[in-house]
Amino acid sequence: MSVNVSVNEPAVKAAAENAAGANTENKEWRPRIVAFCCNWCSYAGADLAGSSRLSYPADVKIIRVPCSCRVNPMFILKAFERGADGVILCGCHPGDCHYSTGNYYTRRRMALLFSMLDYIGVERGRTRVEWVSAAEGARFSAVMNDFVAKITELGENVKVGDLRCKK
């Protein structure tokens, strides 16, 4: 497991760029969505969704993390700065974190970070935390479908990357 905290992690970059690329190829606007999924639960939940032939939109780019607590708030800022329209973070249900308490810290951090993002203009619907276990393949697919629908409804995000470029 890498302990080097870096928002230049290839995965974060690639997911955002991937989402950006997919966006220009199609004329029709598609939301760019980054999903951080905990290895022990939601990522396995995504696998289960796949092997159960349950679909979720291709707009969701998944980044696997060892625990929801691994998600440095800067990862989320990075995703938005690179043009994400929505960011979702999935972890084990409270009480079930593989490392006992990681997700409790995640819950506090994200409560504050998402509220701050809303405060700078990234509407509340564009950020979400969901607890999805490895056994909840169907729930994983439902959550992703719902999130994509919500972001599609909200439309394009403000250009967070332009936060310091006054027009």
Binding site: P94, G95, T101, Y104, Y105, R107, R108, R109, M110, A111, L112, F114, S115, D118, Y119, R124, T127, R128, V129
Partner: peptide, 21 residues
């Protein structure tokens, strides 16, 4: 400090944003 502690009943981020806003 509040970010290095927690309770099991903490508010969920989704509700928190609504409350904070």
């Amino acid at each position: 400090g509040p970010l290095i502690s927690f309770t099991e009943q903490d508010i969920e981020p989704g509700h928190a944003v609504v409350k904070g806003g």
